[in-house]
Design a protein around this nucleic acid. Structure first.
Lengths: 149, 149
DNA sequence: ATTTACTCTATCGGATAAGTAGACTACTGT
DNA sequence: ACAGTAGTCTACTTATCCGATAGAGTAAAT
């Protein structure tokens, strides 16, 4: 289950990817646009900044903006940041592997086998989807051409 | 994240699939074999029985046994039963669809798009893996031929 | 009748998710 | 220099759920 934090983070980042770069967006505006509780969004954006995905400017005309190009921000990183490893079970995780205590031999564990498959499929999707590519698909779905930069 | 319940359920069912059919297995033995807290396993097996996946016999020589052939029990059903829908987000669920309140137009939502992909990949794996096929793979991994029936 | 083993309800501690409050700090335009 | 704007940070609340345990009850077999 995706947490609200991760979900809101993706929505906010996607909105910022739609923004003209170097044009910051305020928390309050972002919150209104994406229907996110402002104080909650605050926390999320702060986290994204500390991860290096966002930059911020204080004072008048300030707000948040992407720290890198949308083509270099992947969903996998966002989801892992808020919800931890993608694998349904720690022994199937690539980034945060932990053996099961109740499992004598991992290579002969049905749960491990099946869940490794699930984690690999999930990682293939989320680590293969950038903000930029997702944005393109969204705009295509809306029958709009991607506005030129 | 897979719950312990679902994990234990899969392990227990897999153990029962290894058992000679019509030979019931007691909760206590199953618990010991799979390193599961007995009272907790009790609850799980009861649930599986109520779902029609297991049958039980009381009294001496009793215990639990599979209600159907291992080739007709799929991981998807087990996981859904204990952990709910496979989709990371309700609006991407096939079996328990729920629209997001904060989402004006689903077909233009990046989160929806990406998460639907994840749910489809997960479902393809879990609804495509039966107890029988998983058992076969486990035995192959153990360099053992599947013991004849 | 007694033993064996499943059935059912209740309970509990701890963890986590989602959201809120409020004080603080820093930047910027005039 | 100094408002006023907007992000930063810490703490807290509240509700829910997970994992696990306890114990009384019921049904079957010998």
């Amino acid at each position: 289950m995706l947490s609200k934090k991760a979900k809101y983070a993706i929505k906010a980042l996607l909105a910022l990817a739609d923004q003209n770069r170097e044009e910051p967006m305020r928390i309050a505006d972002l919150a209104r646009a994406e229907q996110i509780p402002p104080k909650f969004l605050e926390l999320i954006l702060l986290g994204l900044k500390n991860q290096g995905l966002l930059r911020s400017r204080k004072g008048k005309g300030g707000g948040y903006l992407l720290a890198r190009d949308p083509s270099e921000i992947y969903l996998g990183q966002i989801v892992r940041m808020f919800d931890g490893p993608l694998a349904p079970v720690p022994c199937a995780s690539q980034t945060a592997y932990m053996p099961c205590v109740d499992c004598r031999n991992e290579s002969v564990c049905g749960v491990h086998l099946a869940m490794k498959e699930v984690r690999d499929a999930t990682a293939r999707i989320l680590d293969g989807t950038s903000l930029a590519s997702l944005r393109t698909r969204v705009h295509q779905a809306a029958f709009l051409a991607v506005p030129p930069r």
